[in-house]
Computed example of a mutant assay.
Amino acid sequence: MQKVVYEHRSGPTHQLQRGSMQFDDLDLNLLRVFDIMMRERSVTRTAERLGRTQSAISHSLGRLRMLFRDDLFTRDGSVMCPTPRAVELLSEISGALSTIRSSIDRHQIFDPASTRRNFRVGLTDYHAMVFVPELLREFARQAPHATLNIIPANGIEILNAIHLRQVDCALTGASIRDDPRVARIELGQDRLLCAVWSGSAIAKQGLTLDAYLAASHLQISADGVSSGLADIALKAAGLKRNIVATISNYLILPWVLRGTEFITHCGDGILHILDDASEVKVVAPPLRIENVSTSLLLQHHMATDPGMIWLTQVISQIYDGSQKTKVEIMKAQVL
Score class of each variant (00 low, 15 high):
6 Y>P: 02
8 H>D: 14
10 S>P: 06
11 G>T: 08
12 P>Q: 13
13 T>M: 12
25 D>G: 12
28 L>T: 04
29 N>L: 07
31 L>Y: 08
33 V>M: 03
39 R>Q: 14
42 S>C: 05
42 S>G: 10
44 T>V: 05
45 R>E: 13
53 T>A: 15
54 Q>Y: 07
54 Q>P: 04
57 I>F: 15
64 L>H: 02
69 R>D: 15
70 D>G: 01
73 F>W: 11
75 R>K: 11
81 C>F: 10
84 P>F: 00
86 A>H: 13
94 S>W: 04
96 A>E: 14
111 D>Q: 13
123 L>T: 12
124 T>G: 11
126 Y>Q: 06
127 H>Q: 15
137 R>M: 12
138 E>L: 09
141 R>H: 04
141 R>E: 13
141 R>L: 13
149 N>L: 08
152 P>S: 05
153 A>F: 10
154 N>R: 13
154 N>I: 12
154 N>P: 04
156 I>S: 15
157 E>K: 13
160 N>S: 10
164 L>A: 15
165 R>A: 15
167 V>T: 13
167 V>D: 12
167 V>H: 09
167 V>N: 13
168 D>C: 00
169 C>S: 04
169 C>Y: 13
170 A>N: 06
170 A>T: 01
174 A>I: 02
176 I>N: 08
178 D>S: 11
189 Q>G: 01
192 L>C: 07
196 V>S: 00
197 W>V: 00
199 G>H: 07
203 A>H: 05
204 K>W: 00
209 L>C: 02
212 Y>L: 08
216 S>L: 07
218 L>H: 08
218 L>V: 03
218 L>G: 06
221 S>R: 09
235 K>V: 03
235 K>F: 08
236 A>C: 09
239 L>M: 13
245 A>C: 03
249 N>R: 09
261 E>Y: 01
265 H>P: 03
266 C>G: 12
271 L>G: 01
271 L>S: 06
272 H>V: 01
272 H>I: 00
279 E>Q: 05
287 L>A: 04
291 N>C: 06
291 N>S: 08
294 T>D: 10
295 S>N: 15
295 S>M: 07
300 H>M: 07
311 L>P: 01
319 Y>C: 05
320 D>M: 08
330 M>D: 01
331 K>W: 04
331 K>G: 03
333 Q>L: 14
334 V>K: 13
